[in-house]
Amino acid sequence: MGGYFFLHSEYYLKNLDVLFLNDELKRDCMDKNITQNDLLLLAYNELDTNRKLLVINALESNLSLQNEYHDILAVMGKLDEFQVQPNNTSLQIILEESSSAMEVL
């Protein structure tokens, strides 16, 4: 599962710098409580930079966290499969409305 995580986590590819954290910071990371909320915020790219580094570093060394994070990404991927499109008629109506609003101005 760990290997799978590393292969599929784009966050590692985007944040390679975290892999070069010094040992002191790494130990510090281990002491921090990483919550499920942190994983969720990481997945949706809502963590601030410092917290993001801590969470990513914790993920590197914690198989349980990796599994949890993988589960989140997997469901997110499934959700992405559902996407519906509006009709072209709707788009035309909107663009015509915009043109007429422009004429009024």
């Binding site: 996407q83 519906v84 499109q85 509006p86 788009l91 909107i94 663009l95 915009s98």
Partner: peptide, 14 residues
């Protein structure tokens, strides 16, 4: 506007 709508229409409609 058309570019903006085309960029986001699927997410908004979904």
């Amino acid at each position: 506007l058309e570019m903006l709508i085309n960029r986001h229409k699927d997410r908004i409609f979904t």
